[in-house]
Design a protein around this nucleic acid. Structure first.
Lengths: 215, 215
DNA sequence: TTATGATTAGTGAGTGCTCACTTACTAATT
DNA sequence: AATTAGTAAGTGAGCACTCACTAATCATAA
């Protein structure tokens, strides 16, 4: 439970799964780099073509529009940011052994921190989109409510019945867990910092959260 | 201590302090609205002129460039996001009465939540900028280290000596306080939500933080 | 007060440039 | 032979910004 699970690198995973040509892959890679470094709106398609060493027409052969390129990058990110966590909760639920709540917190933190460090560029682009359109945040929130809420609720209930978790409403508990972990992840993404000590950080945050959330 | 202090509305404050004409003020107001709704890059100067009911030349009479407009909006925001907190800490320090740590947490949360709700548009634009250039986040971080760290350190030390605060390093404590409060503020800003129950939320977050941070 | 000159505020039709996207073409693959 | 991938020179639209001009404001002297 405390060992890190396999958190996949989104780019390599979704690129390998698709049957894109080498040139198209380098278009995606160049877009990922430039979007995260300069922002979507300040990246031109000719910039992308130059960095990818292809002609500008090639950029449009596969991804019909510039937005389509953004979509190709963000869709796998969005689909993993939220639903992957749902799976984590389920896995934890299905193992009926009574895992320590603190261990679960540490494992969750570890898992999401690993994901964040391995997908910094995508997450930065996602944050840019969230800040621009209030629709994106609501969409993520809805996905969370739809896919995670039920599992999280059940799991938290178990810990509450165990006497390991305070009797607060589930959204309140979720908010503190999410924001504390975000407190480690966001600075890393926003500073382009590549030196997050995940073992140390997840231990720390689990300790704090457990103190704040035990009955 | 638990009563909210006066948190000023940035736009009205900085606009009234300046000697801008009515038209220039409406240019600023229109920019604020459009930048926060559509993002800086997707707002054209002709959009701004239209919403402000002025000619496009007027936009450029006072604020020489579009960037200058962004600057005029963000500078007061940046100067209040961080340094205002420094002042709060100082105020708290100078009242040498032994205020309860939990009361301080509640007051701090209340203060920043009020600020955030009253300056949603500016903060949303600031978040957009933070997400785009990693320089902005570092700049805020440096301002924090320069203006707040010392005061916060002294204050936390006092609470630690009081036996009200756990003996953790100051950055760790600051991180949890900041992220927990952010957990309430960010959703409000990113969803354009205008219904944050500040009294309830600040009480809640102070309760959680105190549980997690008491020795 | 009022006429005068000067400074500033505001206008809106340009202007040149960048950019997303197209298209007519060639090269490669099957 | 036919379909697909890749090319590179367009193209038109939109944009930030300018400029020649007019309207308003204001200081000062008759």
């Amino acid at each position: 439970m405390t060992t890190p699970n396999k958190v996949t690198d989104l780019f390599n995973q979704s690129v390998d799964d698709s049957d894109l040509s080498a040139k198209q892959k380098s278009v995606l890679q160049a877009s990922l780099t430039l979007f995260s470094e300069k922002g979507f709106d300040r990246t031109s398609t000719s910039d992308i073509a130059k960095l990818a060493n292809v002609s500008e027409g090639t950029v449009y052969k596969q991804f019909k529009t510039k937005e389509g390129l953004l979509h190709a990058i963000l869709t796998p990110a969005i689909q993993q940011v939220v639903p992957k966590i749902a799976n984590d909760f389920l896995t934890e639920l299905l193992q009926n052994n009574n895992t320590d709540f603190k261990d679960f917190l540490k494992w969750l933190a570890q898992d999401r921190m690993t994901f964040a460090v391995e997908n910094q560029a995508q997450l930065r682009i996602l944050i840019q989109e969230i800040a621009r359109s209030d629709g994106m945040f609501k969409r993520l929130g809805d996905t969370f409510m739809g896919k995670i809420a039920v599992h999280a609720n059940t799991l938290f209930q178990k810990y509450q019945d165990n006497g390991q978790l305070i009797q607060w409403p589930m959204p309140r508990i979720a908010r503190y867990i999410a924001s504390a972990i975000m407190g480690y992840i966001l600075p890393v993404i926003l500073r382009n910092d590549h030196n997050l000590d995940i073992a140390q950080s997840s231990e720390e945050v689990a300790e704090f959260l457990y103190r704040g959330l035990k009955p």
